[in-house]
Design a protein around this nucleic acid. Structure first.
Length: 215
DNA sequence: CGAATTTGACCTGCGC
DNA sequence: GCGCAGGTCAAATTCG
C-alpha cells in the first residue's frame, strides 16, 4: 500500500469472492465509489474478504495510526442475490413463506402483515461492508445519523454486539458494531445496505466532513 | 416532553 | 423436529 490516498488493493482468496466482487461492481461501480456510497470518507486499504461472515483472510498486519483511530481495514461481503431481488422486484408482497402463513397465531392482524413484509425483506440480503478499526469509541463518525435498535451478546465474544439503523427517512441501512474479544480496542463495524441520501441530509454541522480519523 | 437507548422477548435460519 | 445463536421488535427507561 504505497499510496493509501489513491490505491485500494483487493486481496481475494476464492473464486467465489471474485464472483461476488464482480457483482459488487455492477451495483456500486468502483470499490472507492462503493465505500463512499457507504459514507466512508476515509481512504482505506482492503486487505481481506469476508465470505458469509467468515473471514477468508483475517487482517492482522500493522495499522496506520491517525489520532485515536487507525485507518480501517476493510473487507467487502457482497451477499446480494440479484435473482432473488429481481423476483421480488423491490417489494416484499410477492415473497411469502408457506410455513409462516400456516400456523402463526398472529398472522391475521395488521401488525402481523407488516411482520410478514419485514420477514420477506430480511430474505433479501443487502450489500455489506465490514471494516476493522482500532478505536476508543464504538461508533465511528461516518457522517450519518444512527439509532441503536438492539444489543446482543454474541457467543465466544466478550463484548456485546450493537445494532444501529440509519435514522434518515426510508433509508434502511444498518450497521453492527462489536469489539474483538482478543483486543478490546479493535472495533469491527459492518455496514449493510446502501444509503439513499447524502450524509449532509443528516447533519447540519461540518462533522460529516471529518474522516474516521477525526476523533 | 420528545428522542434516544436499553433490554427482555420473540422470530428465523441453520446444524445436528 | 429440536435446540441454539443471531437478529429484530417494542415497551420501559433514561436523557437532553
Amino acid at each position: 500500500m504505497e499510496n493509501a490516498s489513491s490505491n485500494i488493493s483487493l486481496t481475494t482468496n476464492t473464486s467465489n469472492f471474485l464472483k461476488q466482487s464482480a457483482t459488487l461492481q455492477m451495483e456500486f461501480g468502483q470499490p472507492e465509489e462503493s465505500l463512499q456510497a457507504m459514507g466512508l470518507m476515509a481512504q482505506v486499504h482492503i486487505t481481506s474478504a469476508y465470505q458469509s461472515g467468515v473471514p477468508v483472510s483475517f487482517c492482522n498486519s500493522g495499522y496506520l495510526t491517525s489520532g485515536k483511530h487507525d485507518l480501517p481495514k476493510v473487507w467487502v461481503n457482497e451477499e446480494v442475490d440479484l435473482s432473488e431481488v429481481q423476483v421480488s422486484n423491490g417489494t416484499t408482497d410477492q415473497i411469502s413463506s408457506s410455513k409462516e402463513s400456516s400456523s402463526s397465531w398472529w398472522k391475521s392482524t395488521p401488525a402481523s402483515l407488516e411482520r410478514n413484509k419485514i420477514k420477506a425483506r430480511r430474505k433479501m440480503r443487502e450489500p455489506r461492508f465490514c471494516f476493522q478499526t482500532r478505536s476508543d469509541v464504538d461508533v465511528l463518525d461516518d457522517g450519518y445519523k444512527w439509532r441503536k435498535y438492539g444489543q446482543k451478546v454474541v457467543k465466544n465474544c466478550l463484548h456485546p454486539r450493537s445494532y444501529y439503523r440509519c435514522t434518515h427517512n426510508n433509508c434502511r441501512v444498518k450497521k453492527r458494531v462489536e469489539r474483538l474479544s482478543e483486543d478490546c480496542r479493535m472495533v469491527i463495524t459492518t455496514y449493510e445496505g446502501r444509503h439513499n441520501h447524502s450524509p449532509c441530509d443528516d447533519t447540519n454541522s461540518d462533522e460529516h466532513n471529518c474522516t474516521i480519523s477525526s476523533f
